[in-house]
Simulated scan of single mutants.
Amino acid sequence: MTSPASGTGSDPVAGLTELLDQLTGTPGAAAPAQEGQAPELVFRDVDQFVSGYLALVLERRVASGPTPGITWCPRWWAHPEALSRLYALWRAWEALRITDPHTGMSIWWRDHLDPHLAALTGDAGPFSRCGADRHREPEPLRVEPAPAEVLAQLPDV
Results as ranks from 00 to 15, higher is better:
85 R>P: 03
92 A>D: 04
122 G>D: 02
74 P>D: 04
111 D>I: 03
124 A>M: 08
94 E>D: 08
81 E>T: 08
112 H>E: 01
127 F>P: 00
96 L>A: 13
85 R>E: 05
73 C>A: 14
96 L>D: 05
86 L>C: 06
119 A>H: 14
104 G>S: 10
107 I>P: 00
123 D>I: 00
88 A>H: 10
64 S>P: 04
95 A>F: 15
84 S>Y: 12
123 D>S: 08
96 L>S: 11
63 A>T: 04
79 H>I: 02
101 P>L: 15
61 R>W: 04
58 L>Y: 02
98 I>P: 04
72 W>F: 13
118 A>T: 08
70 I>N: 02
118 A>V: 05
84 S>H: 14
90 W>Y: 15
124 A>I: 08
117 L>T: 00
105 M>E: 09
99 T>D: 11
58 L>W: 02
80 P>V: 03
108 W>N: 08
95 A>Q: 13
89 L>H: 01
99 T>Y: 15
78 A>T: 04
75 R>H: 12
125 G>C: 08
125 G>H: 05
92 A>V: 07
96 L>E: 07
85 R>V: 00
123 D>H: 05
95 A>C: 08
126 P>W: 12
108 W>K: 08
99 T>K: 13
111 D>W: 14
91 R>D: 05
116 H>P: 00
63 A>M: 06
83 L>W: 04
71 T>L: 08
84 S>T: 08
93 W>T: 01
93 W>M: 04
124 A>R: 13
72 W>D: 01
58 L>M: 07
110 R>T: 12
87 Y>P: 01
62 V>R: 09
95 A>I: 07
